[in-house]
Structures are given as structure tokens and as C-alpha cells.
């Protein structure tokens, strides 16, 4: 079982809870959501508590993450997009920290479950749809009608646009989920090779060097992916929000 690469995604009920037949147990996933939120919030609050005019290292880190997301949002959705800053910042920090915590051995990766990433992407798309109709009214539907298209092609283009819009929450959630899942499985498989090859005696130990190198390299890659996927999620969020703010393209 130690070699099972799927085992790391198994949910364990730490505090079994059941309301009206629905299982809402506090699981290891819930625990790591709490840990992610608590650690990130605590760090950001502690780092900025000095309110230094000249920032300390930690305060500078908090400011950098703030300005990173702020410039991303401003570039993606313009200055009107800044009203969504708390959401984009929370999403980016939550996903980033959850991904990075997932890199610790024996830690559960919150973002490796499709339902979590799907919920986050539905939050984004829901915001886009609700705010898009709230701000633009029926004009939000212009999003599906690109200007300068011949009338003959219109039905086809509209269909494509609608399908692409509907596939957004799916692609957004699957991208993050699949990257986390595949990365962690790959890591576990290669690490598993090290263990099983070592069991084969001296020659096996010699060969085990190869998957060990691979594991080290993959760990580096996974740290990159952890950051990159949080970044991609946030950038796409900004772009979708831009559609809600400026539907006619």
C-alpha cells in the first residue's frame, strides 16, 4: 500500500459528521484547507503588522504578492477590475499555498480533487456571469457575438463562443486538478521505483539512482508547476473578469 500512488488522494474522515444522510465529515482535505487558510492568513497578517514604511523581508513578501496580483488584474481587466481584487488575490494565494503545501511529504494536496478546483472555477465563472449581467444587462450577451462577422457565419460563431464559454469552468478546473494529480502521481511512481529497485539487491540500488535523480528533478518541476498553475488560474480569472467588464470584443 505504501507504493500506491493513488493512496495520497484518499480522504480520511478525521471527524465523522453526518447531517440528514449527507456526509460532511471533517477530512484530511478539510484539515489542509484549514491549514492553508490559517497559515496564509496568519503569515500575511503577521508580516504586515509592522506597517513599516521601509518593509521588513516578510512585509516585502506580502507586498510583492499584493502587487503581483494587482498588476496581473490591472493588465488583464483594467482598473475597473480592481473591485475584484480581494477575490483574485484570495484565489491566487489559496491555490498557491495549497499547491505548495501539497509538495510536503505526507501532506494532502487540496487542489488535487476535481470538486475543489471545480468549485473555485465556478466561483470565478459565477462572478463573471452575475456581474456581467448586473453591469451590462442583456448587453452581456454581446460576449457571444463578435463584431465584424458575416451574417452567414454568425450562428456558427455564436455556437462556438457559447461552447467555449461553457467549457471555461471545466478547462479552468481540470487544468489545475490534472496538473496537481498527474504531478503527484508521477512523483510517487518514480519514488516508488527507488524503493522497489532498492529491494532487488546491489544492482537494484545502483539502478535506483536513475529514478532518484528523476524524483529530485520532478520535485523541482512540481514546485514550478505549483506556482505556475496558481498563476495561470489567476490570470485566466482576470481575463474572464475582463469579459464581464467589457463584453464587446
Amino acid at each position: 500500500m505504501a507504493n500506491d500512488p493513488i493512496h495520497q488522494f484518499q480522504l480520511n474522515k478525521l471527524i465523522p459528521l453526518d447531517i440528514g444522510g449527507t456526509d460532511i465529515s471533517f477530512t484530511n482535505s478539510s484539515l489542509f484547507m484549514v491549514v492553508t487558510v490559517a497559515a496564509t492568513a496568519a503569515f500575511l497578517i503577521w508580516a504586515t503588522s509592522g506597517r513599516g514604511l521601509i518593509p521588513s523581508r516578510t512585509q516585502s513578501l506580502a507586498e510583492m504578492s499584493y502587487e503581483f496580483v494587482a498588476s496581473m488584474l490591472r493588465d488583464g481587466a483594467g482598473s475597473e477590475g480592481m473591485k475584484f481584487f480581494p477575490m483574485v488575490f484570495s484565489l491566487f494565494m489559496f491555490i498557491l499555498v495549497a499547491n505548495l503545501f501539497g509538495m510536503f511529504p505526507y501532506f494532502f494536496t487540496v487542489t488535487s480533487h476535481i470538486i475543489v478546483t471545480f468549485a473555485l472555477s465556478m466561483l470565478v465563472i459565477g462572478t463573471v456571469v452575475v456581474y456581467g449581467f448586473y453591469k451590462n444587462g442583456i448587453g452581456f450577451l454581446k460576449l457571444f457575438v463578435p463584431s465584424g462577422i458575416p451574417a452567414v457565419l454568425m450562428p456558427l460563431v455564436i455556437m462556438i463562443e457559447v461552447i467555449s464559454f461553457i467549457s471555461r469552468p471545466i478547462s479552468l478546473s481540470v487544468r489545475l486538478f490534472a496538473n496537481m494529480l498527474a504531478g503527484h502521481i508521477t512523483l510517487k511512481v518514480f519514488a516508488g521505483f527507488v524503493v522497489s529497485l532498492s529491494g532487488l539487491g546491489a544492482a537494484g540500488i545502483g539502478i535506483a539512482i536513475l529514478p532518484l535523480i528523476m524524483t529530485v528533478a520532478l520535485t523541482g518541476l512540481e514546485f514550478l508547476v505549483a506556482f505556475l498553475q496558481a498563476y495561470v488560474f489567476a490570470v485566466l480569472t482576470c481575463m474572464y473578469l475582463n469579459d464581464a467588464l467589457h463584453p464587446s470584443h
Partner: peptide, 30 residues
């Protein structure tokens, strides 16, 4: 159901803390 509930709770608290404490503080500092 369990994951959605706990995500909603934790992310909700996180969003609240970010929007009410951290973001105003950092933007204040800046």
C-alpha cells in the same frame, strides 16, 4: 458534499480575512 462545505467555510473565512484585514492593510502601507 464534505469537500464543498469545508472549502466554502475555509475559503469564505480566507476571503473575509483578505478583504477586511490583509488587503486594506497592504494597500494602506503602499
Amino acid at each position: 458534499a464534505s469537500q464543498l462545505l469545508w472549502l466554502a467555510i475555509t475559503f469564505g473565512i480566507f476571503y473575509y480575512l483578505m478583504s477586511k484585514v490583509v488587503i486594506p492593510r497592504i494597500s494602506g502601507i503602499l
